[in-house]
Design a binder for these strands. Structure first.
Length: 593
RNA sequence: GGGGCGGUAGUUCAACCGGUUAGAGCACUGGCCUGUCACGCCAGAAGUUGCGGGUUCGAAUCCCGUCCGCCCCGCCA
């Protein structure tokens, strides 16, 4: 660069600078060489500006400009000139001016980019991740990372205003048998022992509450060694918080304020106050899902009772085995063709493991066209009409299966069809609390297990039920849902060791196992633990929703593939034998190079 | 662990029912061009059709296996 320094950003030069000498730097976005005059669009983080090389202005600069290629790094000194009326480019923010270059310094050359540094240019995900640096130069990732930055700044400010203190917790923590698979870190000083990277700061923040920090927060990295999804990465960021001496209402108040501040300051989104609330039960009944997008107007109807005594074996059988029968009515559905129904059926069979997809179409003449109608009595048909509000033009989809499965399938259809048919209320943003989750559920072996995590406190009035009817115990758990995505979840925690023990007992832990797995936690609760509760936002998911991104990979600077690899840095990688020796580790089957 | 979709030039894609020299746009290289802005024109180079095996007179194409990317189930809050 020599002694020359930037005076302006490319994107911020406008007509008011005409006549000024400026120094700008950036990447050669595109070059248009007319032999005589050469145009280069110069790009920096703020935007693009056209720089012009004329032989009559500087023979030397003009000649060097002939060598410039895409993504070369340039520094130029020149004079801002107004473009003539015919040459103004209205598509460019800086299209009214250009810079007549007097001096060009080529700061670096560059190998040709594998794909165009443009908004639209499509590229395979593997290519994008291998050439992540080029992808990061493009507007979508630039925007997403800017949202990320603004959101963390906004949340920190909001935490500050609400009296929270940021406290860091260890990344080298202890492995826990519960929850997700841990990432293990071998200890050099303790051969054969391992640290675990935290799945979340859950336990540590509870210990901070016992320690007397009444309002804690942290923007914390978390690690879970589980299979990836579009909305799940091996490592991710949680906005973690915990408060002492509060009930559910006080926590929700804080969450509401944080969500409001974050969405406003990061994306200019104004959310309606107060956030609506829905019970878990209602969400499952109406939407088949505990994170409903309530902008979609279609709703499910439960017909289990109707088919409990039916002669239709396929449905009756499901109910007899403890399943449910639910229906997704779609009115005015003439636009859905028979082949579309077949496509939906094969979709739910293949992708979601459905046994089939029952459907009834009521034609305009009132006739029922359906593969299943012949199994239904007149009374059943009348009852279906009554409960689903079916009428000519209606299309009814049915699932008879285990509750989780039937709901999962129909809620997916609800979203797909709702979006495809435009059955939406037109709001861009939908936010709500889902509350009153059950504390326990049965796993496939019939053993009671926790729905969220073992520290969730029950509702006070449900505590007696722990002895008598644990499945009916409601937890203090709450979720924040935005546009059908779970932004995060939280609860009040058990601050009394006796209640915590009682819950662990219901979960099937012996005294010995309790001590083994949760001993230090139970001990901590006996040191004078205050009532406390908190929450953790999935920060990446929040950015994903605000940036309208389809995948977490589009809101993270350096994401990993579905198989957990970083294609840019080539991680994970084998390590030198000496490194393993030092850690007292022997690899059973080393990967051949 | 399971199901699905995909993998052809640097890149985005094409190539009929298995058929003779695997094509095109962009990018790249060389040349021309003084008002373009996805500049234009001329010429050129560029391929282990992911990899391995099989069927066949002949395979990008069909079969088997395997690797990689993505979506989903399981798993995970």
């Amino acid at each position: 660069m020599g002694t020359l320094r930037r005076s302006h950003s490319c994107g911020e030069i406008d007509a008011s600078r005409v006549g000024d000498e400026v120094v700008v730097a950036g990447w050669a976005h595109r070059r248009r060489d007319h032999g005589g005059v050469i145009f280069v669009d110069l790009r920096d983080q703020k935007g693009l500006v056209q720089i012009v090389f004329r032989p009559e202005t500087s023979t030397e600069a003009h000649q060097s400009a002939g060598d410039v290629r895409s993504e070369w790094v340039l520094l130029v000194r020149g004079v801002v000139e107004a473009r003539s009326a015919e040459t103004v480019n209205s598509k460019m923010v800086t299209g009214e001016i250009e810079i007549n270059v007097h001096e060009l310094r080529i700061l670096n050359s560059a190998t040709p980019p594998p794909f165009a540094i443009e908004e639209e240019a499509g590229a395979d995900e593997a290519v994008r991740m291998k050439y992540r640096i080029h992808d990061l130069r493009r507007p979508p990732l630039q925007r997403a990372l800017a949202v990320r930055d603004r959101l963390s700044t906004a949340l920190r400010a909001s935490f500050g205003r609400q009296g929270f203190m940021e406290i860091e917790t260890p990344m080298l923590a202890r492995a826990t048998p519960e929850g997700a698979r841990d990432f293990l870190v071998p200890s050099r000083l303790h051969a054969g022992s391992f640290y675990a990277l935290p799945q979340s700061p859950q336990i540590m923040k509870q210990l901070l509450m016992v320690s007397g920090f009444e309002r804690y927060y942290q923007i914390a990295r978390c690690f879970r060694d589980e299979d990836q999804r579009a909305d799940r990465q091996l490592e991710f960021t949680q906005v973690d918080l915990e408060m002492s001496f509060v009930g559910v209402e006080e926590v929700l108040e804080v969450l509401q304020q944080l969500t409001l501040d974050g969405c406003r300051d990061a994306a200019g989104v104004e959310l309606p106050m107060p956030f609506p609330r829905m019970s878990y039960k209602e969400a499952m009944e109406r939407f088949g899902c505990d994170r409903p997008d309530t902008r979609i107007l279609l709703e499910l109807v439960d017909l289990t009772d109707l088919f409990a005594t039916s002669g239709f074996k396929a449905f009756r059988g499901a109910v007899d085995q403890g399943g449910i029968v639910k229906c997704l009515p779609v009115h005015d559905a003439d636009g859905v063709s028979r082949s579309e129904i077949d496509r939906l059926e094969s979709f739910v069979r293949k992708e979601l493991g459905a046994r089939g997809l029952g459907w009834i179409r009521i034609a305009e003449d009132g006739e029922w066209r359906s593969p299943i109608v012949k199994f239904l009595t007149d009374e059943e048909r009348a009852e279906i009409v009554k409960q689903t509000d079916a009428r000519p033009g209606s299309l009814l989809f049915f699932q008879a299966d285990a509750p989780d499965k039937a709901n999962a399938i129909l809620s997916r259809l609800r979203i797909d069809l709702g979006e495809k048919l435009g059955r939406v209320d037109g709001r861009e943003w939908d936010v709500l609390f889902v509350v009153d989750f059950p504390l326990f559920e049965r796993d496939d072996k019939g053993q009671l297990t926790y729905v969220h995590q073992p520290f969730v406190a029950p509702l006070e009035e449900d505590i007696p039920l722990l002895e008598t009817d644990p499945e009916a115990v409601r937890g203090t758990h709450y979720d924040v849902i935005m546009n059908g995505t779970e932004l995060g979840s939280g609860s009040l925690r058990n601050h009394r060791a006796d209640i915590q023990r009682q819950i662990l007992k219901v979960l099937g832990y012996s005294d010995e196992e309790m001590k083994q797995s949760f001993g230090f936690m139970l001990d901590a609760l006996e040191l004078g633990a205050p009532p406390h509760g908190g929450f953790a936002f999935g920060f990446d998911r929040m950015v994903m929703v605000l940036a309208h991104a389809e995948s977490l990979r589009d809101v993270v600077a350096f994401p990993k593939t579905q198989r957990g690899q970083d294609l840019l840095m080539q991680a994970p990688s084998p390590v030198a034998a000496e490194s393993l020796d030092e850690l007292s580790i022997r690899v059973r089957a080393p990967k051949p190079e």
